[in-house]
Amino acid sequence: MEENELIDKLRKEIIQQLNLEDVKPEDIDPDSALFGEGLGLDSIDALEIIVLLEKNYGIKIEDPKQGKTIFASIRILAKYILANQKAQ
C-alpha cells in the first residue's frame, strides 16, 4: 500500500474508532498534530489508536511512551506502519 493511500485509510479508521462525529477525512491534515492543538485527542484516544494498530495492522506497541513519537501526525503514523509491516 502506498503512503498516501494508507493516510486516507487511517483518516477514516481514526474517525470511526474515536467517534469523531463532526470530522471529515479531508479535515485531518496528515502533517498536523493528532494530540494537543491539532485534533485535540487525549490519552484515552491514544489507547484506542494502540488497539486499532494491533487489530487492523498487527502492530503491537509494547512501550506506550513510543506513542508520543509514532502518533505525532497521520503521516508519521503511516510511515511507521509501512516500515513495521515491511519489517514483519
Binding site: I44, E48, E54, K55
Partner: peptide, 13 residues
C-alpha cells in the same frame, strides 16, 4: 472477536 487479546479502553472504562 479477537480471542480475548484486544479490548476497547473506552467501552471497558
Amino acid at each position: 472477536d479477537n480471542n480475548e487479546t484486544l479490548m476497547n479502553p473506552t467501552n471497558f472504562m
